[in-house]
């Protein structure tokens, strides 16, 4: 791909950024302040300040129940925080509906993939395209108004399917895909929106090892196209492999930031992970945090009706 050559030079230099929670970034695409979300008596997210650097791959890691997915839900409008303010490209996003967030160029995927099982793969892809005339009530009944656009979208969708090696499945129902293929389809569909920032929630979970490498390549290629990537992941190999910057959360707070190497060596991070297994008090806390996260996810999935 042609992006391979241009990319390394274009990548911003992160070495000057202080390795501390809530560090200022030279060119932040997302800036958030005092974002909190409580479930019952438990603060699932309590982030003082967060910045996401433009044009790089940022990993969001942390033990189970650290509030990563909840933070994702809050940033994209799928959940409403108790307090806080955040912006994307300078536009405030507090209390902005999820679809508007997506239209601004901030598109997410889900931990439990949300491919539309009863639509074919290509229809899933077409759905992702924005600004379709054919999706407007008064024009839908007149194919002349949307046929050309649909054809163009299909060409773009086919390109993406080829790139993600899903072209053989084009006409299959998305429900017949394997877990890994669903992750790929969801990522490809998100790209149909042409987002500036793509947020991947555990892109590797449930993906078989053979697919993992190609998935990693795809994530990297997103950055090389000039997109910003933010992802939640448990797989440390993947984090080390592809991320430029790592943000660590524990119990709803950001506890550390830095390059992968520096973070992995940070005692606070090791505490956050190991503490979850050793210290009994902490474990209790974590279980309730886990429950809160589960509740948050259930909330997100419950609307499947």
């Amino acid at each position: 791909m042609d992006a391979d050559v241009a990319a390394p030079t274009a990548r911003p230099d992160l070495s000057a950024i202080p390795r501390e929670p809530g560090a200022k970034k030279p060119d932040a695409i997302v800036v958030g302040d005092r974002i909190t979300r409580q479930f019952g008596g438990l603060k699932a997210v309590d982030v003082d300040h967060i910045e996401i650097q433009r044009g790089v791959i940022t990993a969001l890691i942390g033990p189970n129940g650290a509030g990563k997915t909840t933070l994702f839900n809050l940033l994209t409008g799928f959940d409403v925080p108790d307090s806080g303010d955040w912006s994307f490209n300078g536009n405030s996003l507090a209390r902005v509906a999820p679809f508007k967030v997506a239209r601004l160029g901030m598109v997410r995927t889900f931990q439990l993939t949300k491919v539309l099982a009863k639509l074919t793969v290509i229809e899933n892809m077409r759905l992702g395209a924005t600004g379709q005339n054919g999706e407007k009530f008064w024009q839908a009944a007149f194919p002349a108004r949307w046929r050309k656009q649909e054809a163009a979208n299909t060409v773009r969708a086919d390109d993406l399917l080829t790139r993600f090696k899903l072209d053989a499945k084009r006409e299959d129902f998305a429900g017949s895909l394997s877990g890994g293929q669903r992750k790929l389809l969801e990522m490809a569909r998100a790209l149909m929106v042409d987002p500036e920032l793509i947020m991947l929630d555990e892109p590797m979970a449930g993906v078989n090892p053979a697919l993992k490498q190609s998935l990693l390549g795809h994530v990297k290629s997103l950055r090389d196209e000039g997109r910003t990537v933010l992802f939640v992941e448990h797989d440390m190999d993947m984090v080390r492999d592809i991320s430029d910057w790592v943000i660590v959360m524990a119990q709803g707070k950001i506890v550390a930031e830095g390059t992968p190497e520096s973070v992995m060596a940070d005692p606070a991070v090791i505490d956050a992970y190991l503490g979850a297994h050793h210290d009994t008090d902490l474990r209790d806390l974590d279980e309730s945090a886990l429950e809160a996260e589960a509740v948050a996810e259930l909330g997100a999935t419950e609307e499947d009706a």
Binding site: F78, A102, K118, T130, A140, V193, D304
Partner: peptide, 22 residues
């Protein structure tokens, strides 16, 4: 039409459709 496709998608998973800017 694509409009109908959005409806059928909503029937299946509203959040997925929301996340795509609809």
């Amino acid at each position: 039409s694509p409009w109908g496709r959005v409806l059928r998608s909503i029937r299946e998973d509203e959040d997925a459709v929301r996340s795509l800017g609809k």
